[in-house]
Amino acid sequence: MSDVIARYYAAFNAGDAAGMLDCVTEDVEHRVNEGGIRRGKALFAEFCGHMGVSYAEELRDMVIFQNGARGAAEFVVHGRYLQTDPGLPEARGQVYVLPAGAFFDLRDGLISRVTTFYNLRDWVAQVSA
């Protein structure tokens, strides 16, 4: 089942939001540190659309773990901040490199929960420099 996580991140790196959506359940639960919980594919699609215009990111050094219906991934985000996100520093095309990770619940061959973690203070410091 961990192949769905690999497909999800391959779609992410390709900028293919539709491909990412193909990897999640209709009732997907999306949790991002420092934020709330998005429930359902529609809200997840909105998030993907927003991220696609505000950030250009590539995930490198990907390591995926899976045990039954649970999974995890560790990676390094190499990004460029393109458009100011409300409540965050002004975007000026800053580049950043940020270690991150995610945890997954898997159901029927799809991702039913993704929880992403990164150090927001580290990111803010990098884009504010």
Score class of each variant (00 low, 15 high):
Ala91Asn: 04
Leu59Cys: 08
Phe104Met: 12
Val4Pro: 11
Met62Lys: 12
Ala129Gln: 10
Asp122Tyr: 12
Val28Cys: 08
Ala11Trp: 04
Asp22Val: 07
Gln66Glu: 15
Glu46Pro: 01
Asp105Ser: 13
Ile37Trp: 05
Pro86Arg: 02
Gly93Ile: 06
Gly15Met: 04
Glu26Asn: 02
Ala100Phe: 02
Ala18Lys: 03
Met20Thr: 01
Ala129Leu: 09
Leu98Ala: 05
Arg31Asp: 09
Arg70Phe: 15
Pro86Cys: 02
Met1Cys: 14
Gly87Cys: 04
Arg92Trp: 02
Met1Thr: 15
Val95Phe: 09
Ala73Met: 09
Glu90Asn: 04
His30Val: 07
Asp85Pro: 00
Arg121Lys: 13
Tyr9Val: 05
Ala125Cys: 11
Val76Cys: 09
Glu57Lys: 07
Gly52Asn: 00
Ser128Tyr: 14
Gly49Asn: 02
Arg80Ser: 10
Met51Gln: 06
Ala72Thr: 06
Thr84Tyr: 09
Gln126Leu: 03
Ala129Pro: 05
Ser54Arg: 14
Glu57Phe: 15
Thr115Arg: 15
Tyr55His: 09
Gln94Val: 02
Glu74Leu: 10
Val28Arg: 06
Glu29Gln: 12
Ala72Phe: 11
Tyr96Thr: 05
Arg7His: 15
Gln94Tyr: 07
Val114Ile: 15
Met51Asn: 00
Pro99Thr: 03
Tyr55Leu: 13
Ser128Phe: 13
Ile5Lys: 12
Ala56Ser: 11
Tyr81Gly: 08
Ser2Tyr: 15
Gln66Val: 08
Ala18Pro: 01
Pro99Trp: 07
Arg121Phe: 15
His50Ala: 13
Arg107Cys: 10
Asp105Leu: 13
Glu34Gln: 11
Arg70Trp: 15
Ala42Met: 07
Leu82Asp: 10
Glu34Tyr: 15
Gly52Cys: 02
Tyr55Trp: 12
Ala45Ser: 04
Ser128Leu: 12
Asp22Lys: 10
Gly101Ser: 09
His50Tyr: 02
Gln126Lys: 07
Ser128Val: 11
Val28Asn: 07
Gly109His: 08
Asp61Val: 08
Glu90Ile: 06
Asn119Gln: 04
Asn67Ile: 11
Ala17Ile: 03
Val76Lys: 05
Arg7Asp: 15
Ala100Val: 04
Gly35Tyr: 13
Asn33Thr: 13
Gln66Asn: 09
Ala14Cys: 01
Gln94Lys: 06
Asn13His: 01
Phe65Ser: 04
Glu58Arg: 13
Phe12Glu: 05
Tyr81Glu: 13
Val77Ala: 12
Ser112Asn: 11
Gly93Ser: 02
Thr116Ile: 07
Ile37His: 09
Asp3His: 14
